[in-house]
Design a protein around this nucleic acid. Sequence first.
RNA 1: GCACCCGUAGCUCAGUGGAUUAGAGUAGCUGGCUUCGAACCAGUUGGUCGCAAGUUCGAAUCUUGCCGGGUGUACCA
Length: 545
Amino acid sequence: MLKQLITIDQELFGVDVQPVLTRPDPRFGDFATNVALQLAGKLGKNPREVAETVAEHLRQTGKFAEVTVAGPGFINLRLSDRALLEMASTEPAKTRAGQTVVIETNNPNPFKAMHIGHAFNAILADTIANLLEESGAATYRVSYHGDVGLHVGKSMYALLHYVENQPERLQEVPEAERSSLMSRMYAEGAKAYKENEAAKAAIDLLTKQSFVRDNPVYAAVYDMVFDWSFEQIAKNVKRLGNKPTRQRFLESEADVRGVKIVRDNVPKVFQESNGAVVFKGSEHGSFDNAFVTSGGQGLYAARDLGLMQLKNEQYHPSKSYIVTAEEQRDYFKGVIAAAGLCFPELKDVTVNIPTGTVKLTTGKMSSRDGDVVEIGWLFDQVAEAIRVRGGEVTEAIVAGALRYAFLKVRIGGDVVFDINESVSIQGNSGPYLQYAHARACSILDKAKREQPTTEERVHFEDGERSLVLKISECSEVIEKATGELLPHYVCTYLYELAQEFNRFYEHNKVIGHEREALRLQLVALYRDTLAYGLRLLGIIAPEKM
RNA sequence: GCACCCGUAGCUCAGUGGAUUAGAGUAGCUGGCUUCGAACCAGUUGGUCGCAAGUUCGAAUCUUGCCGGGUGUACCA
């Protein structure tokens, strides 16, 4: 349709423009274009006259039921009912076939409990992965975790005090209490590091230990809590509806090669400064940052370089996505710039997607002070809300509510999380969509008949047409969401779709009506579209609830 | 200080160059279940789109300057 417009414009006026097809208010048409306004500007002609000329040519193609000119020079197009139904039944194109992408879909650090912020990023990343995968790209979900470094030193400091030289004590800790114990231990270590010089010195040593782990007690405690961490992460991530990752990367694996990359690129990319090796990120929209300490130890940034090399060797991705909190925005600008200088072939491969901070209305959430909202608590809150509402609590609905609450807002801004209201189960929420799906299933189940065959002549009544028009938007919405890496477009669309259906349902009888065959076909099409969209969001579409 | 992000209804957010009336949810008020599932639908109250200039046929949307909030600013991750 777009191609036709371009051709007509070029034939008529010999001018190159970028016509845009939009979805206007349905009373104007199915589609609208502003070409005439763009053309008029370039040609110095009256926009309405240009619009009339273009409209006349579009009418002559015979592909539209209605072509009108409105306002300052918009051209509104209406498809025939038959063409609209065909469009609504068309699946999105695999526009990224042949491409390979790698994306980190969860990276909570071990030795800490997973909190809301981790869940937020994990859900966003996994959903972006779904979109990329659906568009045909070979998509590899990976994870990356900080198993070495200062935060480990802090946790180990408190943990070693806790076990008092008897690592087997940890075996007595019940599974349900492990997360909060890890949070507590980390908070204790962090506090000691800040307030106590002796503790700071001890923690610095314990940090170095995290790289070698040659002390038996240290190693025993480390291994035990390391395992706890990943059991907890795996459990939570699965509960949230994320797909499993293909590979887990650890900072310890990336460290040595990261440091080597840095050293190999002195002085071309990095400079020595006060004994440390730094990158002048300030020349690349970032800030000057140390990659290797004056003591020769690799830092986070060096490991990120090593990780990029590892990912490239294993997957050769055309794009590699890292979803992080916005605090790391400038940091990643620097690391990515440095990577581009060290490996020209990796320039523009790695993309950081900063997500904004999850904040609580009750105040700041700080992992450092141990003031975090753990995920288990969040699951319980949602379950309670459903119970209060009188519904049956299922994992699918709890996860759907949580996931949707995080996905429906545009990526980038801060997310203010009201612990009492944010995870809603009515209105624009996951359960609303799930309910709208279950309803459609129920109708189709009751009808007990196979899909009716399409009649030769299709003519919709108003309510039917609105529903089909909305269904027909699906492909373009998903392509837009994938192109811009913004899953919330899908949420907004599915919500509008479900609303349209609920209206239809309210006002139009399906079973027993003389138009039953056609309406059942529409309900089935709607049900499939909604289920498809929910699947991309990682939300289960239940047949009953 | 400098850089980046944000500011839309009481609250949480869509809309980021286009259509006489800026949309949802939620909260408040009102109506709708003997009728395919009321976790639903319909109606109603609520906004000088932070402020001010500019660009444009047209600005919540672009530019500039202010005001307010947040984040970052090398040996943490």
